[in-house]
C-alpha cells in the first residue's frame, strides 16, 4: 500500500505529473480576484474566505480526471484489480496521494495568499486549519467521481458535474470556519461538521469507489 502511495507521489512530481498545476491555478485565481472586484481592502476581506475556499475546490478538481484515467489507459488499473491489494485500499491510497499533492500544499499556501486578499491575521490559522481538515474530503469525493467516470473518454465534464454538487457541504462549512475565524467568533460547530464530513467520506467512499471501478472494468 505504501508502495502505491510512493509511486503516485513520484509520478505526480515527474514531468507531466500535474504536481504544481493545482497550486499554480490557485495562485492565479487569487491574484486575479482583486483585479475583478477592485483593490478596496474591506470588500476583499469580506469575500476572502469564500474566494479562497472556492479556489481550493476548483484547484483540487483540476487534477481529478487523471486520478484513475491514466492507470486505466495503460492497463495498470486492471493489474491493480487482480493484485493482492484490495481495490478499496488502492482507492484510498490514490486519494491520499491526490490530497498530498493538491490539498495539503493548498492549505499550507492559503494563509500566504490570504494576505493578497486582505484577510485579517486572526483568520489565517483558521483558514489553514479548515482547508487541512476539509480538503481530504474533496480528494475522496473527487476519487469517487473519477471512479464513476473512469471508463469514459473525455469524462472530465461529467466528472465536474458529478463532483461539484457533492462538494457543496464541505465548501459551506469550510468557508464558515474561515469567516467566523476572521470575525473572532466561535468556530466549533462548523469545524465539527467539516470534520464529520471528512471522516464520513473517508470511511464510506473507498468502498463505493472500488465498486464503481469494478463495474467500469468489465
Amino acid at each position: 500500500m505504501i508502495a502505491l502511495l510512493l509511486r503516485d507521489l513520484r509520478l505526480a512530481t515527474r514531468a507531466g505529473g500535474g504536481f504544481g498545476l493545482s497550486l499554480t491555478f490557485f495562485l492565479i485565481l487569487v491574484t486575479l480576484v482583486p483585479f475583478g472586484v477592485g483593490p478596496e481592502g474591506g470588500r476583499l476581506a469580506t469575500i476572502a474566505p469564500g474566494i479562497l475556499w472556492v479556489g481550493a475546490l476548483l484547484a483540487s478538481l483540476l487534477s481529478l480526471d487523471r486520478l484513475f484515467a491514466l492507470d486505466h489507459e495503460d492497463g495498470t488499473l486492471e493489474q491493480l484489480a487482480t493484485a493482492p491489494l484490495p481495490l478499496e485500499a488502492v482507492v484510498a491510497m490514490k486519494a491520499i496521494a491526490h490530497w498530498l499533492t493538491t490539498g495539503l500544499p493548498l492549505a499550507l499556501i492559503a494563509p500566504l495568499l490570504g494576505v493578497l486578499l486582505h484577510l485579517p491575521g486572526a483568520a489565517m490559522p483558521w483558514l489553514a486549519l479548515s482547508l487541512a481538515l476539509g480538503t481530504p474530503a474533496l480528494s475522496m469525493i473527487g476519487a469517487f467521481g473519477a471512479g464513476l467516470t473512469v471508463g469514459l473518454k473525455r469524462g472530465g465534464l461529467l466528472l465536474s458535474l458529478l463532483v461539484l454538487p457533492l462538494y457543496v457541504p464541505t465548501l459551506i462549512f469550510g468557508a464558515e470556519v474561515a469567516r467566523r475565524g476572521a470575525e473572532g467568533a466561535a468556530t466549533g460547530t462548523p469545524m465539527a461538521f467539516l470534520g464529520a464530513i471528512t471522516l464520513g467520506t473517508l470511511a464510506l467512499l473507498p468502498y463505493a469507489t472500488a465498486a464503481a471501478i469494478r463495474v467500469n472494468l468489465r
Binding site: R14, D74, T76, Q79, A83, P84, L85
Partner: peptide, 29 residues
C-alpha cells in the same frame, strides 16, 4: 487470487524507469 493476468496493455508507467516500474509491482506482490 491464484491467477496472474497479462492483458493487451503492458501497465508500464512512462515516466518511471524500468527498474522503478518493476520494483513497484514487486512491492505490491
Amino acid at each position: 487470487d491464484q491467477i496472474a493476468w497479462s492483458g493487451h496493455a503492458d501497465a508500464v508507467k512512462a515516466t518511471l524507469t524500468v527498474r522503478e516500474n518493476l520494483a513497484f509491482w514487486a512491492a505490491i506482490y
